[in-house]
């Protein structure tokens, strides 16, 4: 049986309340797994810990306790620079606000992601990725010169820059108008399928979540989300 690309075991994460010593639990996950190449939609109400979960999986934030295993590596025990390297090499991130670098062209946004990975900066691959998402003619345009849909496509191409095993997408359709929502989902799914990449999409839109073969509610496996305390 193939090893899961994401495996969380007894993961807990809490934050201090502003101005006090009291802490609020955000994540309390006994177990969560995502298999290689699987596509999964993760739903949850606002404040249920969706973004924190993605931050813990990507190593941006460290869990207070438990095991966070990414492609066989327990990143919870690793120092930050190593977690950064794991994130650069094995994970691709797509954000709700796209988060493209405004001063960089579409091509440069993809090349920047490559610069932080273990591989070399491959201009040809960056061009291919952008062409594959239909932006071959917009390589040298800056984000401000691209439409919202085009920016999201750059974000998808950038997420795949370092041949990741997993793409994490945080509300990728929230900033896109209804007409383009389906395009974004189709783009993510077809691209990840083409590259054999596992896809975890966090969304609060049922119509989006309904299109995925695996559909989970965060409240179902995050005990901290069942009794909202905030």
């Amino acid at each position: 049986m193939e090893q899961p690309v994401i495996e969380l075991v007894d993961v807990r994460k809490s934050f201090a309340m502003p101005g006090g010593e009291e802490r609020v639990d955000v994540l309390d996950i006994p177990e969560f797994r995502l298999d290689a190449g699987a596509h999964c939609a993760l739903e949850g109400h606002s404040g249920s810990g969706k973004s924190t979960l993605l931050n813990v999986i990507s190593g941006i934030q460290r869990a207070d306790s438990g095991r966070v295993v990414i492609c066989g590596t327990d990143i919870g025990s690793l120092p930050e620079p190593v977690r950064d390297r794991v994130r650069a090499d094995r994970l691709g991130l797509v954000f709700q606000q796209f988060n493209l670098l405004p001063g960089f062209t579409a091509l440069e946004n993809v090349l920047v992601a490559m610069a932080f990975g273990s591989g070399r900066t491959d201009r040809a691959r960056a061009t291919d990725l952008l062409s594959a998402v239909g932006l071959g003619h917009r390589l040298h345009h800056k984000p401000a010169e691209l439409s919202v849909g085009q920016q999201q496509r750059v974000a998808v191409a950038r997420a795949l820059a370092n041949r990741p095993r997993i793409v994490l997408a945080d509300e990728p359709t929230a900033s896109v108008d209804a007409a383009h929502q389906q395009q974004v989902i189709d783009l993510l799914r077809t691209t990840c399928t083409a590259h054999g990449v596992a896809l975890l999409v966090v969304t609060h839109a049922p119509e989006v979540a309904g299109q995925f073969p695996h559909r989970l509610r965060l409240e179902d496996f995050n005990r901290a989300a069942r009794t909202p305390s905030r």
Partner: peptide, 16 residues
């Protein structure tokens, strides 16, 4: 700060 956050999310180390 926003640019740095983006780059860090893409895997840039603090030293970078």
């Amino acid at each position: 700060s926003r640019d740095v956050a983006i780059m860090r999310a893409l895997g840039a180390r603090r030293s970078h």
